[in-house]
Design a protein around this nucleic acid. Structure first.
Length: 300
DNA sequence: CCGAAAGTTAAGCTTGGAAT
DNA sequence: ATTCCAAGCTTAACTTTCGG
């Protein structure tokens, strides 16, 4: 009873999931699963793919520069966090830090539960390409990295160098399913990193993250748009953002801003499915974000 | 602007072996 | 024999470049 039917079922599993999430979010706005991202990390973002063995990695947004100093592995290779997994981890870390107001964050006692919580699938094998293996790799890369924020104004310059974590303890018992618990695995966020991420958290909907998680660009844009709408509402005015500037802060590595622009507009189409209240205008030079309902109903 | 091509990453499927 | 994993394989998506 073979699963044949190349065309019908093939259409697009991923698109189905996106549409399911879109319907759910539209029909059940009150069921939002509120998670947070830090404002600074919304404005400057992580690499999409492995930058390879380079010394440092930078993103600039106006006079704020975010850089990442990677952990150096045994063979002297730079190990950057990249792709969607460290982004999902950051959403989780910021959310837990905000919720508990504590630098120490526990991972719970079950690895599969933890994975589901951050939007990964614990049951897709354990090979090199599985979520478990990639999660473990990206956890190491993210937790051992140092994130720096450099703020330069006319007569004033402020630099903060923040190790993401100061201490970690993991109990990976991967061998058999009975051992698949994290016991009391925990991480302790670096002091300054903790201050930064809890200073001004931006609330987003976990359901949207799960739907967009295949695209680092879409994840970044969704969080950024949520924040930008919030800022537009606050000023009661449209936010007018030059494509060039947006490209600098989250552009992946597109050589031409116009390529970045067209890919971003495609990603925004998907984001509008999970954030239907968005009102966006686009010109050759600018992306214009209108005041609108925020991605999440404000707390009562 | 549009679409094709090339290179990465994500996700599902298959297989083989160990444990029950 | 059946179940459960680990590992490998294949295909779908995504990112980036480039030329018409």
């Amino acid at each position: 009873m073979p699963r044949k039917d190349p065309d019908a079922s093939k259409s697009s599993f991923f698109l189905d999931k996106l549409l399911d999430a879109a319907v759910d979010i539209k029909q059940n706005p009150e069921a939002a699963e509120r998670v947070y991202m830090a404002r600074h990390l919304v404005q400057c973002t992580l690499p999409h793919s492995d930058p390879g063995n380079v010394n440092i990695w930078r993103r600039r947004n106006g006079n704020v520069t975010l850089s990442i100093r990677p952990h150096i592995g045994k063979d002297d290779k730079a190990l950057y966090p990249y792709g969607s997994i460290p982004r999902l981890l950051l959403f989780w870390m910021v959310t837990e830090a905000t919720r508990t107001k504590s630098r120490r964050i526990t991972l719970g006692d079950s690895l599969p539960d933890f994975m589901r919580e951050i939007g990964l699938n614990p049951r897709n094998g354990s090979g090199e390409r599985s979520d478990v293996a990639r999660l473990k790799e990206q956890m190491t890369r993210l937790f051992t990295a140092q994130i720096n924020v450099e703020q330069a104004e006319e007569a004033h310059e402020m630099n903060v160098y923040m190790p993401v974590t100061s201490k970690t303890e993991f109990w990976w018992a991967f061998k058999t399913s009975a051992d698949r618990s994290l016991w009391d695995s925990w991480i302790e966020l670096g002091e300054d990193f903790f201050k930064m991420v809890t200073a001004s958290p931006v609330p987003v909907d976990m359901r949207a993250l799960r739907a967009l998680k295949r695209s680092p660009l879409a994840l970044d844009l969704y969080a950024w748009l949520t924040y930008t709408v919030f800022a537009a509402n606050k000023n009661k005015a449209n936010r007018i953002v030059p494509w060039k500037g947006l490209h600098d802060q989250m552009g992946g590595e597109y050589a031409r801003t116009r390529d970045f622009r067209s890919k971003t507009l495609e990603a925004i189409k998907k984001i509008k499915l999970v954030y239907p209240a968005l009102v966006i205008e686009s010109t050759d030079e600018y992306l214009i974000v209108h005041p609108a309902k925020t991605a999440i109903e404000s707390k009562e």
